[in-house]
Simulated scan of single mutants.
Amino acid sequence: MPNKPKKNAEQATECPRDIQDICSREASAEANKAVLEGIAALQSNFQLFKAEITEVIDKRLDQFSVTIRAELTAIKKETDLAISAVKNTMDGQAKTMAELERSTTYTSDTVCQLQKEVERLTNSVSQLTEKCTDLESRSRRQNLRILNIKEGEESGRKATDFVAHLLKNALSLDALPLIDRAHRSLRQRSDNTSYPRAFIVRLHYFHDWQNIIRKAAQLKSITYNGEKLLIFPDLPAAILKQRARFNRAKELLRDRPGVRFGFLYPAKLRVTHNGEEAYFTDPGKAIMYAEQHFGEGRVSTS
């Protein structure tokens, strides 16, 4: 019996706590409701703001779209015009290129034909030049060229008689050679201080020409009135030019013991060394032969 009042006291203390809980729950419910109402209001405001922004953006996009379309249309027109102009230019250039290709082909074919024709004509000219040189040489076959006769020595006498006696006396010939023509070379007369003009002589008989050339080659020195004479065959300038290419080789061979040299027609150098003969048509090979056998020096005859 004494414990019952204690239980009642505990019950009495528990009742206010439940009331407090209920009150707090009601307060929380009201707060939550207020929050939800605020959230709903915010959502409503956000939807309105969103709609306004969307409307503004749509209007701006429409304006931009119209502007861009207009600009693209203008650019397309300009591009079409430019492309059309470029196409016309390309078409014109294509036609020009086609014409140039045809012209180049024609020119190339023409040049090939001209090259063949030039080669043919060059060969013909070379053959004709060789024939003309040969004919000129044959026409001069009995001619002599005499150098170092003073100007005026023949004055008062026929040139043919003067040269005939000169050759007979200088070469100790048995008889006077028969001479058809004799004259000085056709250039301006030189004074006493310059080299005299050469005498060009035409012999009537070829055996007289051979005899004179042979004796002139045998004699080391031919003099007339104290002057040293030089007697050569009268050759065309083209052959003399070919023979002049051997001058260096002749310098190396001249005055060598046991060496004789001369030319075979038209320009073949014949070298005789101790009974052995060598022939050269190439000046370089003749120089190599002379240098190999005699070196680059020159033997003096003094």
Rank of each mutant, 00 (worst) to 15 (best):
P5Y: 15
K6Y: 11
T13N: 14
E14A: 04
P16L: 15
Q20W: 06
D21S: 06
G38A: 15
I39V: 06
I39S: 04
L42V: 01
N45P: 01
L48G: 05
I53N: 12
E55M: 07
R60P: 00
R60K: 14
R60N: 14
Q63T: 06
T67G: 06
L72H: 08
T73H: 10
E78R: 13
V86W: 00
G92Y: 03
Q93T: 09
S103W: 13
T105I: 05
L121I: 09
T129A: 14
S139V: 04
N143M: 04
L144R: 02
L144E: 05
I146K: 01
E151K: 06
F162R: 01
N169T: 12
A175K: 13
L178M: 13
L178Y: 11
I179Y: 06
T193P: 00
Y195I: 12
A198Q: 04
F199Y: 12
H204R: 10
R214E: 15
L219T: 07
T223C: 06
L229W: 04
L230V: 08
P233D: 13
P233K: 09
A237Y: 05
R243Q: 15
R254A: 08
R254E: 15
D255M: 09
F261V: 02
T272Y: 03
G275S: 11
E276Y: 08
A278G: 04
K285F: 01
A286L: 09
I287T: 02
R298G: 09
